[in-house]
């Protein structure tokens, strides 16, 4: 056995080697009384510039952890009361509702609640909507006549559209659309629609962009997506051969989803955190959202970027919602799985 004792030396060498390398990094202990910690499920390109402006204006430093909304939300559950985070900014309300039901979000002050954009966020929760994204019908103007487009998302199961429609079952916005359909029309009708779509050979895509590229490439002729992706693709290529439109007024297919922001129960900096939320809802931030990424501003009287509908017609087309926070994403995923699309 003695012949192999070099391993012991190696082990002994490994420990200083590892710790030595690591000690290059001083521990992060610059915790500042004022400083805010933001967990952002929205990307750096969107949040970074706003954070800089906020720091400049209020002299409060904000440190951000960027990630995917779902993963951050699970991590926040895991951290529980020991979370270093003060604010959570999520891509979709599903994550915020789940946090709220687990008691992880702290009650917002009256003055912040007063800012809640009622038409975008019909029920009171411990978070506030920050911007809206509409579900739309994308189509190929070359292969489909605008007059012949389906007027309701329920018409997509017609034989005329067999194999011609694209959707993205793993996409969170799609799932929240299905959830709304369930609250509005019941599970039976939703199941019927989902399996109707499946037997009508709806094509599954991993996200919204490939749906649009699929339409451009002639794989499919219609697709149900979020509204802003097409603008971004058209920014890069103005000739991109896809157009989009809404279904008839009030159709569930025109659902408007929101991104939202909330303060964590574990935070001891409620005041500063509320300052940040107020800043996100301010005119200049809202203009930034709509101009930069073509989402819908949620605050009243804000003009959306050119090409988007004004808020009034957006709301006229959007379905009237009977949402509440007991919305059940779990049930939606279960249903989608039973139908065999997830």
């Amino acid at each position: 056995m003695r012949r192999y004792s070099p391993i012991i030396i190696i082990f002994l060498l490994t420990i200083p080697a590892v710790t030595g390398t690591l000690s290059f990094y001083a521990l992060d202990s610059t915790a500042d009384e004022q400083e805010l910690v933001l967990y952002s499920g929205r990307s750096e390109s969107l949040v970074g510039p706003l954070v800089e402006q906020f720091e400049e204006r209020h002299g409060i430093k904000v440190r951000v952890r960027y990630g995917a909304t779902t993963q951050l939300s699970i991590a926040l559950h895991e951290e529980g009361r020991r979370s270093p985070a003060d604010i959570f900014w999520a891509q979709d309300r599903g994550a915020l509702d789940a946090m709220d039901s687990s008691g992880l979000l702290s009650t917002l002050s009256e003055s912040i609640q007063a800012l809640r954009p009622v038409s975008f966020q019909p029920y009171v929760g411990n978070w506030i909507a920050t911007s809206g994204r509409a579900r739309v019908l994308a189509y190929s103007p070359e292969r489909v006549d605008k007059e012949n487009l389906p007027v309701s998302v329920f018409d997509l199961t017609d034989a005329a559209w067999q194999g011609r429609v694209g959707w993205a079952p793993t996409n969170a916005s799609f799932q929240s659309f299905v959830t709304s359909m369930r609250t509005q029309y019941g599970d039976a009708k939703t199941r019927e629609w989902l399996s109707g779509m499946k037997s009508n050979q709806a094509q599954s895509y991993g996200s919204n962009v490939p749906i649009l590229q699929g339409i451009a490439s002639g794989e499919i002729d219609l697709g149900i997506t979020n509204h802003y992706y097409l603008y971004r693709l058209k920014d890069a290529d103005s000739e991109f051969p896809v157009e989009q439109t809404t279904f008839q007024k009030g159709d569930i297919g025109n659902l408007v989803n929101v991104a939202g922001i909330g303060i964590l129960q574990s935070s001891s900096k409620q005041d500063n955190a509320e300052k940040f939320i107020r800043f996100v809802l301010s005119n200049e931030s809202q203009v930034f959202f709509t101009e930069e990424i073509k989402e819908y501003p949620v605050m009243e009287g804000m003009a959306p970027a050119s090409g988007l509908m004004d808020q009034e017609s957006l709301m006229a087309y959007a379905p009237e919602l009977h949402l509440d926070k007991q919305d059940d994403l779990q049930g939606t995923l279960q249903l989608m799985m039973e139908v065999g699309i997830l």
């Binding site: 699970i74 559950h77 895991e78 779990q330 997830l342």
Partner: peptide, 11 residues
Amino acid sequence: IYRQYMAGFDR
């Protein structure tokens, strides 16, 4: 696995 984590953020 994704579906379970996604659903109700259930661990």
